[in-house]
């Protein structure tokens, strides 16, 4: 083969996947596309994918700029190593996809933006489940007899991928559903063969245009809430909307695309597919909705009802804090300023 639809004379278009601050679920979700993974192999040359093959950062550095056709970047920017890889892969890639909730909006790691670095380290290195008698804490440099060792520098405020480099597409989900990944890979392959066009840059791919409620089969009537319950404490009607039963369900603000897996299985939507189309601040949208269904006009009673929702910020911004308008709590920002 002398050439291919990508115009790369050396063979197949190149594919990369990178893992920054995240749990690894995104990587598993890609492997979970079953036999479609063979299409990936048939249509792409995998040049960098630490979880699946051996490749070094310096190998990527040696590649010509723009030589990777498609990079799926999962994980948020927690430290300077993550940021370095974001810049490097941006430079090397034609299409850079913020893949999964961490890269798109910070996800669970982003919830740490409500805490200071000190608090995060205390929880991780001095918590009751941690055996660390010498109180060792991560250092970014360490003088060993053999020379100075370096570890990535921790950032006080975690960032989303598009807060450090321009991103071409967003693929939400924690992790993205495998059938959605499969569909996106098909689309990219078709586009490479000139059989399809890619959506405009900046688009959300591999997800729906509506909300999780739209995909949810539970029956809806009038919502009037006088008490919020945790799902394990409530007697749940399996056919009725969870929010109507006083269980905070984020489906109203969350982008469709998952086929409402959680509410179908009896669990509330936690919002991993991120803000629905047109929603600027995910938590604010939820606040609007939740306040609308509280059945009281008396401030004292409203306060009493809201007492049954002890951590509103944590519930409303579980996946979206780093991607929200305020991005982090005041204390984390203060530490970030000191750093700068």
């Amino acid at each position: 083969m002398t050439s291919n639809p990508d115009g790369n004379p050396n063979g197949k278009p190149k594919f990369a996947m990178c893992w920054a601050a995240s749990c690894g679920g995104c990587e598993i979700a890609v492997l979970n596309i079953h036999e479609k993974i063979l299409d990936v192999d048939q249509n792409f040359e995998v040049v960098f994918w630490p979880v699946a093959m051996d490749a070094k950062y310096k190998d990527v550095e040696a590649m010509p700029d723009g030589s990777i056709t498609l990079t799926l970047f999962n994980g948020s920017i927690r430290n300077d190593e993550n940021e370095h890889m974001a810049h490097l892969l941006r430079r090397k890639s034609k299409i850079l996809v913020a893949f999964g909730s961490c890269a798109c909006e910070g996800c669970i790691p982003g919830l740490a933006n409500f805490s200071t670095t000190q608090e995060i380290f205390d929880a991780a290195y001095a918590g009751i489940s941690t055996d660390n008698p010498n109180g060792i804490r991560p250092q970014s440099a360490w003088d060993a007899p053999e020379g100075t060792l370096h570890l990535p520098k921790f950032y006080p405020v975690l960032k989303t991928l598009d807060q450090v480099v321009p991103v071409d597409y967003y693929m939400p989900g924690c992790p993205p559903e495998s059938h959605q990944i499969g569909a996106v890979i098909d689309l990219v392959i078709q586009a490479l063969h000139g059989e399809a066009t890619l959506p405009p840059p900046g688009a959300v791919i591999g997800a729906g245009q509506s909300t999780v409620c739209d995909e949810c089969p539970r029956a809806r009537n009038v919502k009037k809430i006088t008490h919020f319950a945790r799902i394990q404490d409530a007697l749940i009607d399996p056919a009725l909307c969870l929010l109507e039963q006083g269980v905070l369900c984020n489906g109203i603000a969350t982008r469709s695309g998952c086929t409402a897996l959680c509410p179908k299985a009896g669990a509330a939507c936690v919002g991993c597919y991120g803000p629905a189309e047109g929603v600027l601040d995910y938590g604010a949208r939820l606040m609007t909705a939740v306040a609308s269904v509280i059945d009281s006009t008396d401030p004292a009673e409203i306060n009493r009802i809201l007492d049954s929702l002890p951590d509103p910020a944590g519930a409303f911004y579980r996946f979206n804090l780093a991607g929200s308008l305020l991005r982090a709590g005041k204390a984390a920002w203060a530490a970030d300023r000191v750093k700068a």
Binding site: A291, L306, P312, K330
Partner: peptide, 12 residues
């Protein structure tokens, strides 16, 4: 009321 509670968690 909900907003105030949420903002407090942001340290505002």
């Amino acid at each position: 009321i909900l907003l105030q509670r949420t903002l407090a968690q942001f340290g505002i």
